[in-house]
Design a protein around this nucleic acid. Structure first.
Lengths: 135, 135
DNA sequence: TAGTCCAGGTTACAAATCGTAACCAACCAA
DNA sequence: TTGGTTGGTTACGATTTGTAACCTGGACTA
């Protein structure tokens, strides 16, 4: 006990990680970047994000809307029309998300290489775990 | 046809979103931030990240190791000792992750308020999907 | 001598989530 | 009447996540 609470262990960091997991998931990022260019309709986005299903698009948009990052506007026409748009909060998210995106792009090769090396190590047979330090 | 490829739809953005989903998941972020302070042992991390299970810690660390963000050092002692440490690549990730973290912290209140408003609007007795179990 | 512990993992199994496809509502065109 | 539109929702199988139990293997203990 009397354990000093590490700085990353505070509720702040926990909340951060929760929100990060939400805004950082595969589809959310793509949708935020897509909406960064302006409001879009549902099916328009479905076509653009190619690979996403109606269900996942709905769920992702609901999540973003719930977090206040995206606004949803329904036009009571037939057939229905629904516009999605980044809120100011959503727009402010663009910057850090793009920073992360740029990091990924800049290090994509390193990551791919590390993955290949890791898979090479683990796949063929049981390689000896190398001890690099003394304990 | 009107099949113009939108800018965010390139393979680059797809790879970015894939890696982002990996490094941006709930546990990975906490672990990267935790290891930012220096190398740690397995159980030490398990205690610090409170709420994570052995399995998820193992899986998350394996994923980070595979991506070249974390290095794993085994000491062949009894009982065993394993140190995890951020690689230079992992350290370089700190910056954009913390930027995103700062955005989240700065907008935590807005997000919470938006969530509350959304839940109030939508379903007084049908909460969407938030944490239902608590440890 | 057996029993227990430790650290770090793995496995078995339940619960939640993702993904795919089908269906629905309301109205218009043919 | 049938078919087509848009924006969803539901059903259901496939992944992924989470929980709990077990394992190793020498040291400590009774």
């Amino acid at each position: 006990m009397t354990e000093e609470h590490p700085p990353f262990h505070t509720e702040g960091c926990l909340a951060v990680s929760r929100v990060l997991a939400r805004v950082g998931d595969k589809w959310s990022v793509l949708i935020v970047m897509l909406l960064a260019g302006g409001p879009r309709r549902f099916n328009e986005m479905k076509r653009m994000v190619d690979g996403i299903s109606q269900r996942m698009l709905t769920l992702t948009l609901r999540g973003l809307e719930r977090d206040g990052l995206v606004s949803r506007t329904v036009f009571p026409t037939i057939p229905p029309r629904v516009d999605y748009e980044l809120t100011p909060l959503g727009h402010s998210l663009r910057e850090p998300v793009m920073a992360l995106g740029q990091w990924v792009q800049a290090n994509l090769a390193d990551i791919a290489e590390a993955q290949a090396a890791f898979d090479r190590r683990g796949a063929p047979d049981a390689p000896p775990e190398q001890v690099r330090r003394q304990g």
